[in-house]
Design a protein around this nucleic acid. Sequence first.
DNA 1: AGGGAAACCCGAACGC
DNA 2: TGCGTTCGGGTTTCCC
Length: 270
Amino acid sequence: MPELPEVETIARILRPECTGRKITSVQVLWGRTLEGISPEQFAASISGQVIRGVTRRAKYLDMELTGFHLFVHLRMSGDLQVKSPKYRPEKHDRLIFNMDDDRYLVFNDTRKFGRVWMTANPESVIGRLGPEPLDSEFTPQMLYVQLKKRHRLIKPLLLDQTFLAGLGNIYTDEALHLSKVHPLRISDTISLIEAERLHAAIRTVLQTGIEHNGASIDWVYRGGEFQNYFRVYGREGQPCSVCGALIQKITVGQRGTHFCPICQEQSYEL
DNA sequence: AGGGAAACCCGAACGC
DNA sequence: TGCGTTCGGGTTTCCC
């Protein structure tokens, strides 16, 4: 499930493969992948565009083109890979870009949730996103202040991409457990100490994810390594690695939420 | 303002 | 075995 670390890994893999390549044509195998543009218009405007660079913003892959940005959000099951000239389309391929070295950039997405935007104005796609959790501007103090301004359950707030950009369900549960914050805590009751722990935990889980995905070349939707290090996610009924209590699973804001009832006390902690 | 529900999808897991 | 049902995941949109 591509979250921030997986997108970061893809960007790192694609950057040397695609930078400087010209897109000569594109096959649109599933039109609804494209946001705000018809397949015909898309094909017409992308042909001849040169890929200037590949970066990441939150969970969006950002390909800078000659006159546009191509943003790709992989959502649940998306995958983006460079294929050799002899590649033939496979099941669930949605977009196939032909590059000027005769290789292909293939967007495959089993569940059809992934989306692609082509725009001259990046703000129209990523303008509402909150701070980047791994940036130096994102400080413990800033997190504390922002939490104080809101009155929301901490779990859904951390998942809100306009509050903080990049955490998905898995990393949120992991970060809450690592920082010993209960998922049902109300944001403006979180102390400075707790906010500092949460800040550190968010960075730790994301960085750990990046390291483990980076360590395995073909992780994308074929099983990465980070799953072997889950502290709570998917471990309902199994013992907490810290205290031995059984991990519980509840629903918070319509999302499956895993936590340790002992480590993550619900009471206020100074 | 915040929260709940529905919608978009399909493969895996589950129940019988 | 084979069938039908449920679930989950990220995000947006609508409604209370």
